[in-house]
């Protein structure tokens, strides 16, 4: 076995895994707050990438601003989705709400196709430096950006939920909506924030991924599936699980493509998901499956 090839596959896997982890975190944010699986999460990533490209190539903004601006815009999209589509359905069955997110996903994809057409657009790498050599493999600097941004985002979210008043209130709402409500916390408002944050995390993933995988209107679907896989693997609602699940899916996909066949790379990830679901339906890191319904 050639070591340099293995290192290369692992690096690729970790990079992809970091993106899947961010998607899984996005799923968790909405799920923890509302119990909804938001199938429009992939479209948040797509919008992040497309908007970054638009800011850079069409509006000629500096690259750093082009990467940051979409975060705010997609947060607004997330909040708007909650206010206009999810909140009016708050008395509906959970399945209805999940179907609504499927509808939103299709609608956002359609809107993107109308706005940007079916083309892929390039975004330059964040750092204009040569690949770094590591154990015979070469590390694309943008991969380091992906890993770093994912790590910073995860840390920032953890600190936000642990130490800020709004973060604590969101956590309280997710665990005990009724008790949070009786403490004067506006549950609907916190749910809106969950959607906004999910949008923001999606946009971050989209912008940092754009120089590696050129964004087009339809990149969201497959990303969402992998991210969903990662979230379920790690245990839905569990952010440490999201990281673990994301890395697992990314590595399996990359190693599978390298050593077995690139044609099977998706199949391998889903196969592992099936096995985990049979053996450990609550996910790798969750202790129980039960969600607190108070």
């Amino acid at each position: 076995m050639e070591w340099s090839a293995l290192v290369q596959y692992v690096l690729t896997g970790i990079t992809q895994g970091a993106i899947y982890a961010l998607l899984a975190v996005g799923f968790n944010l909405v799920y923890s707050a509302t119990g909804i699986i938001n199938f429009a999460q992939g479209e948040f990533v797509m919008l992040g990438g497309m908007l970054a490209v638009t800011c850079y190539s069409f509006l000629h903004l500096p690259l750093w601003l082009s990467a940051i601006l979409p975060i705010g815009v997609v947060m607004l999209v997330g909040a708007g989705i909650h206010q206009l589509a999810i909140r009016p359905l708050r008395h509906a069955h959970l399945v209805t709400l999940i179907m609504a997110t499927v509808g939103l996903s299709v609608a956002l994809r359609g809107l993107a196709k109308v706005l940007w057409g079916a083309d892929s657009y390039p975004l330059p790498a964040f750092s204009n430096v040569d690949p770094v050599a590591l154990a015979g493999a070469s590390v694309d600097p943008q991969s380091l950006w992906v890993m770093g941004v994912a790590a910073v985002t995860g840390t920032a979210l953890t600190l936000f939920f642990r130490y800020s008043l709004t973060g604590r209130a969101m956590t309280a709402c997710a665990a005990r909506p009724l008790a949070a409500c009786l403490a004067g916390i506006r549950v609907e408002r916190m749910n809106m924030w969950a959607f906004a944050l999910a949008g923001g995390v999606g946009a971050i993933a989209g912008a940092v991924l754009a120089p590696i995988a050129l964004p087009s209107f339809d990149v969201g679907t497959s990303l969402a599936l992998k991210g969903f896989c990662a979230a379920i693997l790690g245990g839905i609602g569990n952010n440490a699980g999201a990281l673990l699940g994301g890395l697992l899916v990314g590595l399996l996909e990359s190693l599978g493509a390298g050593y077995i066949s690139s044609g099977y790379k998706d199949a391998i990830a889903f196969l592992v998901l099936l096995i985990v679901l049979v053996l450990r339906p609550q996910g790798l890191l969750n202790v129980t499956m039960r969600r607190d319904e108070s």
Binding site: R168, A169, T171, A172, A175, R176, L178, A179, A180, A183, I185, S294
Partner: peptide, 14 residues
Amino acid sequence: MIFAEMPVVDNLRL
């Protein structure tokens, strides 16, 4: 209906 996964002080502060 305490917030089980938070420390006592955080429950009180909320």
